[in-house]
Design a protein around this nucleic acid. Structure first.
Length: 279
DNA sequence: GCTTTTTACACCCTTACGTCA
DNA sequence: ACTGACGTAAGGGTGTAAAAA
């Protein structure tokens, strides 16, 4: 099955160590271990899952059980008294397209308009009685079931969608929309978490950068001081030849000055100053 | 076997409605 | 009662992969 764009989502992992080890940037198509702990649901589950997953799902939701309109009315009456259910909307309905392959969507539409507890003739007149979008407010129970299902799989195949729609007394399109919006909400929250994390990374990197710049300035000052210059031990890190960019081996700490360049031992005739930024 | 068209699905952006402070 | 902010159901556009022609 196809992969959505967000399956290619970029995650960024930066590791900070107490010993100022190099930062690690891991760009990979999955969430970082740190961020994934904050991630509520897996992203890479696809509807192309094996049949056993569908069967497992269908075991929980009885495809053959009719939606309980009585229960639905009770739910909307108790937990969502202001629910206004109408699936009659303008524009091309996806369920119409689905009807060509499944045919069950039409049956599901029957259950909708009856459960409106606030739909009045005034409102029908206000909206012209047709072709105007009236927003459905899902009941708490419906939302809970949808939420539980989403935790199991954040996408549904057509069978699962229809079964869930039947169970909840909704249209397949409504279930589909709910899952789509739910995925969007999850992604948004994850983006916010990632953003916060990256902000903290920037702060730490800024601090680290300032610290290193300060350290470099101190080293430059130290080098310019003749009193300390002669006492300096040769550099033990960042020994890279400026001409060929080869990294030298460990310097000899018995050598008194930096003038004994490891590059000389490597056959180079010149020295370079690791305390001075290369231009 | 290859190309084009169709179909189904997911995502994104946006709109509009319901709720609440 | 009014209003703005916010959450969210739903519409429409677009991209993509698989199936069909």
């Amino acid at each position: 099955m196809m992969m959505g764009k967000e399956d290619l989502g970029l995650s960024l992992s930066l590791g900070f160590s107490q010993n100022h080890h190099p930062l690690q940037l891991n760009l990979k198509p999955i969430s970082s271990p740190i961020l994934s702990n904050l991630q509520m649901f897996p992203w890479n589950q696809t509807v192309s899952s094996p049949d056993h997953q569908n069967q497992q799902f269908l075991r929980k939701i009885d495809v053959n059980s009719l939606p309980s309109t009585v229960d639905l009315e009770e739910e909307t009456g108790v937990s969502s008294p202001n629910s206004t259910i109408s699936s009659t909307v303008s524009g091309k309905r996806r369920s119409e397209r689905e009807g060509t392959s499944g045919g069950a969507g039409d049956d599901l539409d029957i259950t909708l308009d009856r459960s409106s507890s606030r739909g009045t003739s005034d409102e029908e007149e206000e909206y012209g009685g047709e072709a105007c979008r009236k927003k459905l407010r899902l009941s708490k129970d419906q939302s809970a079931v949808l939420e539980d299902t989403f935790k199991e799989h954040n996408t549904l195949n057509p069978k699962q969608k229809l079964a869930l729609a039947k169970k909840l007394g909704l249209t397949a399109r409504q279930v589909e929309v709910w899952f789509q919006n739910r995925r969007a909400r999850t992604k948004l929250k994850q983006t916010e978490v990632d953003c916060e994390y990256l902000k903290r990374c920037v702060e730490k990197l800024t601090e680290e950068n300032q610290r290193l710049e300060k350290e470099a300035a101190e080293l430059r000052a130290l080098k310019l001081s003749p009193r300390f210059y002669g006492q300096m031990s040769p550099p033990t890190t960042l020994l890279m030849c400026p001409s060929c960019e080869r990294v030298a081996g460990p310097s000899n700490h018995n050598q008194p000055t930096v003038s004994l360049s490891p590059w000389l031992q490597m056959g180079h005739g010149s020295t370079f100053d690791v305390t001075r930024p290369r231009s």
